[in-house]
């Protein structure tokens, strides 16, 4: 059986040792390295194949600058309160209260995730999503939007989820302001 190879990067020694120990309890997982900095992680990755990285959520911005990590699934290790937008950048997020079984499952699932799930993800709205956004801003219901664009209500819901994910804006009022500020719509049409 092929092991899933894990690298852990976490500045807190307590968390680092804890995650490494929990990962090593699973027969299908193998710790390729447990280090405190991204520099050390890069050194490990030059010599060892790594399938999944577990990284402190606080490192998110620095991770974006490391080319080797862009194609890998990364599980965020959250030990403090952070903005939800930061967490969205990870394939999955574990906390200090995640159980051993959950963490194993998270890593195994992450190993199968396509890499584009990670940082390279575009936050630009597609043309269709813009169409939906404009109609949301004009106050149309999902059913009305579906009929206007000749798509199913289910597809409208899926577009709306993507719009919320990409813009970080949830309320209809907020989406309307977003549409105006980005000039997708002029206020006379509201």
């Amino acid at each position: 059986m092929k092991h899933i190879s894990i690298a852990i990067v976490e500045p807190s020694p307590i968390i680092l040792e804890g995650v490494a120990s929990i990962v090593s309890h699973s027969p299908s997982l193998r710790v390729a390295g447990a280090v405190a900095t991204l520099g050390e992680l890069q050194a490990i990755m030059r010599n060892t194949e790594v399938d999944v990285v577990v990284a402190a959520v606080g490192l998110v911005r620095d991770i974006e600058g490391v080319a080797e990590l862009q194609s890998l699934p990364i599980i965020g290790m959250q030990s403090a309160i952070v903005d939800a937008a930061m967490l969205r950048r990870f394939t999955a997020v574990a906390t200090l209260y995640t159980s051993e079984e959950e963490l194993h499952r998270m890593i195994i699932d992450a190993a199968d995730m396509p890499a584009e799930h990670n940082y390279a993800e575009s936050h630009e709205l597609s043309e269709r999503e813009r169409d939906v956004l404009v109609l949301v801003a004009r106050g149309l219901t999902n059913k009305e939007i579906a009929s206007e664009l000749n798509i199913s209500p289910h597809t409208v819901i899926s577009h709306r989820k993507n719009i919320v994910h990409k813009t970080g804006i949830r309320s209809v009022a907020g989406l309307t302001v977003y549409a105006v500020l980005n000039k997708f719509i002029d206020s006379e049409r509201l």
Binding site: A85, G168, I169, R170, G174, V177
Partner: peptide
Amino acid sequence: RSNDIASL
């Protein structure tokens, strides 16, 4: 809505 203001 608080988050929306920040995002905008």
